[in-house]
């Protein structure tokens, strides 16, 4: 599904990704872990198409397409979804209207008929249950005045509505208490199936207790320096990141 080879990226004059390689196949959940500043969020941003980041080398193949050539909205239409670490507040744009516009523009790009108001509400109600989100929240301006937990649930709600093939969850656990974390993780798990893939970017192992990954990768200085299974996450939790840094320094 996703094949990243030798990816180099920078923002302004800071080189952040330094030859990153990653293969994600359908149905897999990959966790990207790493210390602060290792490039985790940059990877998520580059995959979603954030303009400030410049890819200086390497390739990203997504379902046979050169992902790096696509605009952010084209990537979304092709099935990529980024759950933001800091979802943006947009005053005056109601979540429902925004979602209806998004769903219908994505449907249009996929050659499907737009959903009318009734069918849209039907789909929406069904997806709302997944993340236990209340309609009163969705009537409000997008993320405006939402608590941290509400914002993250709204992200997963949007993910459910857009039915992505590849979802990238950028630090979705940050700022969540244990109940909110469980709700968000349950939502993600219900959306998991053998055809779609998820990349979970996280600093801590905590989220991975709920969203159990098939693979865990450690990102350090813009490269994946170690890969393993979910046990690697436990090891990182127990020992911290310093031993990884030492290993890299020795190598």
């Amino acid at each position: 599904m996703l094949s990243i080879k030798n990816l180099h990226a920078k923002i302004e004059d800071n080189q952040i990704l330094n030859g990153l390689n990653l293969e994600v196949r359908p149905g897999e959940v990959h966790a990207i872990m790493g210390p602060n500043g290792s490039g985790k969020s940059t990877l998520a941003s580059v995959l979603a198409g954030r303009e400030e980041f410049e890819v200086t080398d390497g390739t990203v193949d997504y379902l046979g397409k050169n992902l790096l050539e696509l605009d952010p909205e084209e990537r979304a239409r092709e099935g990529i979804f980024l759950a933001f670490q800091y979802p943006v507040e947009i005053p005056g744009v109601s979540t429902i209207n925004f979602m209806k516009t998004a769903v219908n523009q994505v449907r249009e790009a996929r050659g499907q008929e737009p959903l009318d108001a009734v069918s849209f509400l039907g789909v929406m109600k069904e997806k709302m249950k997944l993340v236990e989100i209340d309609q009163s929240l969705l009537n409000r301006s997008l993320n405006e005045g939402f608590s941290g937990g509400e914002k993250k649930r709204n992200e997963i709600f949007q993910m459910a509505m857009l039915e992505p093939k590849l979802a990238i969850l950028d630090e979705t656990d940050s700022g969540l208490d244990i109940d909110a974390l469980r709700i968000v993780a349950n939502g993600v798990n219900k959306l998991r199936n053998k055809n779609n893939s998820i990349i979970v970017v996280t600093h801590y192992q905590r989220l991975l207790e709920y969203i159990v990954p098939d693979f865990v990768h450690v990102l350090y200085k813009g490269k994946i320096v170690k890969s393993g299974t979910k046990e690697l996450a436990l090891e990182l939790e127990a020992k911290g990141y310093d031993w990884i840094k030492d290993e890299v320094a020795l190598a």
């Binding site: 952010p72 909205e73 933001f84 943006v88 998004a102 949007q158």
Partner: peptide, 15 residues
Amino acid sequence: DEEALFYLQTRGIRK
């Protein structure tokens, strides 16, 4: 707000 524009685009909305 460029960040807000990007956010909307990542949901498949044309710029």
